[in-house]
C-alpha cells in the first residue's frame, strides 16, 4: 500500500479530501498534517511515497516542506496545491514547481484531478495514457 501525506492548514479541507480518499483506502494509506512543522516531523518518523502540500501556511510554509523533502527524501513525489497567492504578482504554484514539486494543482481542483495526478506520479496508470506530461 502506498503511503501518502496530505498537508493543509485548513481542517475542513483536510477532512473533506480525506472523505474522498475513503474509497481508495485499500490502495493508498493517507496521513494528514495541519501545518508544515507537523508534516516535517512525520516525514522524519516514517516513510511516504508521496506528499501533497498546501503552499501558504502559518508555522512553516509549504515551500519549506517541498525544499526539505526534495533534499532529504529525493525519492518522494510532491504535489503542491494552492488557492492563490498573497500577492497578485506572484504565482506561488510556479514557485512551487521551481522548488521541485512534480505536479501543481490550483484550488479548487476536483478530487479526480488529484487522484489522476497521484496515479501518474506513483506509476499506477493502468493504461499509462495520461494526456498530461508536465511532470517535473
Amino acid at each position: 500500500m502506498k503511503k501518502i501525506l496530505l498537508v493543509d492548514d485548513d481542517a475542513d479541507l483536510l477532512d473533506a479530501l480525506e472523505r474522498n480518499f475513503r474509497p481508495h483506502r485499500h490502495t493508498w494509506h493517507l496521513t494528514t498534517a495541519l501545518n508544515g512543522a507537523e508534516a516535517l516531523s512525520l516525514l522524519q518518523e516514517r516513510p511516504f511515497e508521496l506528499v501533497i502540500t498546501d503552499i501558504l501556511m502559518p508555522e512553516r510554509e509549504g515551500l519549506e516542506v517541498i525544499m526539505e523533502v526534495r533534499r532529504d527524501h529525493p525519492e518522494i513525489k510532491v504535489i503542491a496545491i494552492s488557492g492563490g497567492s498573497r500577492k497578485m504578482s506572484l504565482d506561488v504554484l510556479d514557485v512551487a514547481r521551481s522548488f521541485g514539486a512534480h505536479k501543481v494543482l490550483a484550488k479548487p481542483f476536483t478530487a479526480d484531478d488529484l487522484f489522476q495526478a497521484i496515479r501518474t506520479l506513483l506509476n499506477e496508470d493502468v493504461q499509462a495514457s495520461s494526456p498530461e506530461q508536465s511532470l517535473s
Binding site: D10, D12, L13, D15, A16, L17, R19, N20, R22, P23, L56, S82, G83, G84, S85, R86, K87, M88, A106, K107, P108, F109, T110, A111
Partner: peptide
C-alpha cells in the same frame, strides 16, 4: 483593492475546494 482581490480569491478558493469535495463525497 487589487492586492486584496488576490487574497480574497485565496480565501474563497479553499472553502470552494472543500465544499466541492464534500458534495462529491455525498454524491458517492
Amino acid at each position: 483593492v487589487g492586492q486584496l482581490a488576490a487574497g480574497v480569491a485565496h480565501e474563497i478558493n479553499t472553502p470552494t475546494q472543500f465544499v466541492g469535495d464534500n458534495t462529491r463525497f455525498l454524491q458517492e
